[in-house]
């Protein structure tokens, strides 16, 4: 009988090279499956087990997973885009034009990067509201919620800094309007505006600063906080499941029923 893909994969996991890299061997015992998560530097952020109930679509709508997916796509498309992009005026615009019309698949990569960025902002917002309406920010998950708020801000900043990079009319005026809001901060507003743009108006310095923020500082910050975000899910007891909270939280009517049981 021909081997199935599963068996080939198991064979691969049994080899010395694989085991030397991933530290976990083959086998489908609970122990082996737990080790596969726990012994991997990336996967060990997650817990080895998940409540079966939390796998249903309605529990999370997979919004966190999908947000991570958009982040992967953005990294995978952003790095190739950097290969054809010079953050200087007006070369940035011509490079974007080249990506649009000259470079093979450049148009597609830019489209994918841009639409994924919009999708990520949308998904982060959706994730936040979903978490709120499920009450998943409650003790002991308060701090993970705060990290989530930080990640929301980082996502907005990532998208905002990326908005300037094509150096077209759309980019230039959106950033001009947006950065002038910073000037409205009392007392230190003009200083913030000056530091953000590296000058008193949107020009070559601002483009370079936004480029460095967009490609280096903000992605690193995002990765840092995402790692904590995932790790805290495990440390705080896994994905929030409704019934692990006090009955009174679940719904008023059920709590009433239980109180009636006790009283009666």
């Amino acid at each position: 009988m021909a081997k199935t893909a599963d068996q080939y994969f198991d064979d691969l996991r049994e080899t010395r090279v694989w085991r030397s890299i991933f530290r976990s061997g083959t086998g489908s015992s609970t122990l082996r499956r737990a080790l596969a998560i726990q012994q991997n530097v990336f996967l060990h952020l997650f817990s080895t087990k998940v409540r079966t109930r939390m796998l249903s679509f309605s529990a999370t709508w997979y919004l966190g997973t999908l947000t991570l997916g958009t982040f992967f796509i953005l990294v995978a498309t952003g790095i190739p885009l950097m290969l054809y992009y010079h953050p200087s005026v007006p070369q940035a615009y011509h490079d974007t034009k080249d990506l649009q019309f000259v470079v093979s698949s450049g148009l597609f990569l830019r489209n994918l990067h841009r639409w994924s960025a919009h999708a990520m902002v949308f998904l982060v917002f959706a994730h936040m509201f979903k978490v709120f309406y499920r009450g998943a920010y409650r003790t002991p998950r308060e701090f993970n919620w705060v990290i989530g708020v930080i990640l929301l801000l980082i996502t907005l900043l990532l998208s905002y800094t990326g908005y300037l990079l094509p150096w077209d009319q759309l980019a230039y005026w959106a950033i001009t309007v947006g950065s002038n809001i910073a000037s409205a901060v009392p007392l230190i507003g003009d200083k913030i505006h000056f530091l953000l743009l590296g000058g008193s108006s949107v020009n070559a310095n601002a483009l370079l600063r936004f480029y460095v923020l967009h490609c280096m500082i903000l992605p690193l910050a995002a990765i840092f906080f995402v790692a904590i975000h995932f790790w805290r899910i495990r440390k705080d007891g896994g994905l929030y499941a409704h019934s692990s909270e006090p009955a009174a939280v679940r719904s008023r009517s059920r709590a009433k029923k239980k109180e009636a049981t006790i009283n009666g």
Partner: peptide, 20 residues
């Protein structure tokens, strides 16, 4: 707690991969 749990490997990872 005594709730039903599923091993993250491979079930949960697989679901996440399909979603992505």
């Amino acid at each position: 707690e005594t709730e039903d749990q599923t091993q993250s490997f491979p079930e949960v990872l697989f679901r996440a991969a399909v979603a992505i």
